[in-house]
Amino acid sequence: MAEEPKPAKAPVVMATVAWDGAIPELLREHLGGSVLDTLLYLDQPFAVLTLAAMLPALDLLHAEADFDYLVDITAVDYPKREPRFELIYIVYSHSRNERVRLKAQLPVDQNPLSAVPIFLGANWLEREVFDMFGIEFAGHPDLRRILMPEEWSGFPLRKDYGITQMDNRWVRNNLGIESGQ
């Protein structure tokens, strides 16, 4: 959509500040160098981890800091970046009333570990991430598509998937029409 002329360029990176406190310390103490950064943006804390440290971090927060509620798992696709995906976990602690985001970079050819052993609720959330991005979680009990039809090919939330694009073969076979458009 055409917009009005571009105003002055906004800063291209997130204007973050460092996040210190008990939780970053806890993470650093146990995971050491795997904790790449602990930052605050708009008063929302997040930690950037290596992919391998993600599950241990979740486990640690769950066991040691009483983060007992997994709010959400999601991913963001940056096709131009390497590694391509960013995996995001949001956890919350009822007793501390704190919400923390954990992020890790994920290359296309790697499979993150499933968080289901720690949080049962991760089951469907991970299935959705798989459905939309094609990220396979190793050790997931039942990794199938959840929102899209099971035989669908393509991962709709990847950036190279067009908004009107669809699996024409599936549409033809199952709906008996040439195209859904």
Partner: peptide
């Protein structure tokens, strides 16, 4: 602003 253009960043 009339044209809504949040700065680079993320929020939940």
């Amino acid at each position: 602003a009339k044209v809504i253009k949040p700065p680079v960043g993320e929020a939940y």
